[in-house]
């Protein structure tokens, strides 16, 4: 047994309960590749709720609810904790944003967004399970079908 699977962080943000295999998509959506500080990515942890889960920890940075709402598109079960001095200072509920802009690619190959430089835009039409609708071609895309730009 290891003492810790992933070290606790002193200050920053923990994104927990990410569906198994989706951690990299969360990193992608949040543009964490650009992050200068330490980012820890853990996969396939045991979870009572999900069976298996992924976790992402970002040190010394508190994400704003607005920034993280976008992760619901790839990780609808995710929860967010702001850590200050090793303690959970704030729990943030992530919500599906009203408009999903420039994150998702439309899966209709004949959509104008796939044929011309158009910033993509989707609206959620249902939350559980997540379904989104293209602002342009009106195609409905289910959670499983979502591909990121």
């Amino acid at each position: 047994m290891r003492a810790y699977k992933v070290y606790a962080i002193k200050n920053g943000t923990v994104i927990d309960h990410i569906p198994q295999g989706r951690a990299f998509k969360v990193i992608d959506v949040l543009d964490l590749e650009e992050e200068k500080g330490i980012v820890t990515c853990g996969m396939n942890f045991e979870s009572k709720r999900l069976g298996k889960k992924d976790v992402v920890k970002i040190e010394n940075k508190e994400l704003e609810p607005k920034e993280v709402n976008a992760i619901t598109i790839v990780a609808p079960t995710a929860t967010l904790n702001i850590i200050r001095n090793f303690k959970v200072a704030k729990k943030i509920k992530v919500k599906v944003p009203k408009v999903i802009e420039e994150i998702v690619e439309c899966n209709n190959p004949n959509c104008i967004t796939r044929n011309e430089k158009v910033p993509t835009k989707f609206y959620p039409i249902s939350g559980h399970p997540l379904e989104i609708k293209c602002h342009y071609c009106e195609r409905t895309i289910s959670y499983e079908e979502i591909t990121l730009l």
Partner: peptide, 10 residues
């Protein structure tokens, strides 16, 4: 009128 879906909205 345009052959691609979503063109009119764009």
């Amino acid at each position: 009128r345009h052959p691609q879906e979503g063109s009119a909205r764009w």
